[in-house]
Amino acid sequence: MLGTEVTVHVNRGSADALEVATESLEIRESVTLLLQGHTSPAHVHCRLAGDLEYVATIDQANYYVEPDGVTAVPIGVDADAIEQPVEGRLEILTGYGSESVSIDVTVVPGTPDIDVDESLSEPARSEPDPTALDSAVDRLAAVGLDPATLAVLALGLVAVGIAALTAATVGGPIATVGVAIVVVGFAVALFLLVR
């Protein structure tokens, strides 16, 4: 039974009589004990017994209950501090202990706190569309060429292009031999990467 209020009738029908509305209670939050006065005033003592006293508190133990009045007794419960149910009793006494009732109380663990930061209020960012270069690299990688091989291939083509432009500008047999050396070096590097 989950609830936040429990009523105990005091002096209903006879002096020093106690009647409880429920004999057991399952809670995960603070509860209020309502002492409902009837024919005559009374002094009522409330206490926690068993393991309940480790997870619950009562502000004070003794209460004066007016006839036809209601006295609220707040019982604080710290269910967040436990990982498994805790059992105990709430004992209510009157007539200097001559009359008593008890309520079996089970405190169940509370729901864990979930930290929510401001990033949850922002829309999720999608990945940007791939560029033409990214698409070309992905297609070549699917063929079996990794990005390092592609980088060497690009640098080799740039080196051959620069050598050819230099040979065309300078002219002569020595420039042609230089271009041939660059082309052979590029071919050897490409062969070693691909095999």
Rank of each mutant, 00 (worst) to 15 (best):
A49D: 15
S14V: 01
S121Q: 10
L145E: 12
C46W: 09
P67I: 00
L157C: 04
P41G: 08
V8K: 05
V184R: 06
L18Y: 14
E127I: 00
E5G: 00
A21C: 09
A142Y: 12
E29P: 01
A136H: 09
D138W: 03
T39I: 09
G172F: 13
M1T: 12
G171P: 02
D115N: 14
L48T: 07
F191E: 09
A164E: 07
Q36C: 08
D104N: 13
T57K: 14
A175T: 03
V101A: 07
L192E: 09
T149K: 01
V183K: 04
V20F: 00
T71K: 06
E118G: 02
N11F: 15
T57P: 10
V44H: 04
V116N: 12
I27T: 06
V182Q: 15
G156L: 01
D113V: 02
E26Q: 13
T57W: 15
E118W: 11
S30K: 11
G144T: 11
L34R: 14
V177S: 15
V143I: 12
G172R: 03
G161H: 11
P85L: 04
T166A: 10
G95I: 02
I114T: 11
S102H: 14
L140S: 10
V137I: 07
G69Q: 02
A167M: 09
V182S: 03
I92Y: 08
V184F: 15
N11Q: 06
V116S: 13
P74V: 12
V73L: 14
V77S: 12
A163P: 05
G50A: 08
A189I: 00
A159P: 08
G97K: 05
L140D: 10
D51T: 00
E26W: 13
D146W: 10
T176V: 03
V101L: 05
A17I: 03
P128G: 00
A151Y: 07
A164I: 01
D16A: 04
D113S: 09
V182D: 11
P74Q: 13
E87R: 08
N62C: 02
H38K: 04
V10G: 00
R125W: 07
G50L: 06
V179L: 15
E122G: 00
L153A: 07
V86Y: 15
P130V: 01
M1I: 05
A159G: 09
T57C: 12
F186H: 03
L52R: 07
V10Q: 00
A168N: 15
H43P: 06
V108S: 15
V20M: 10
H9W: 13
L93Y: 04
E23C: 07
D51N: 15
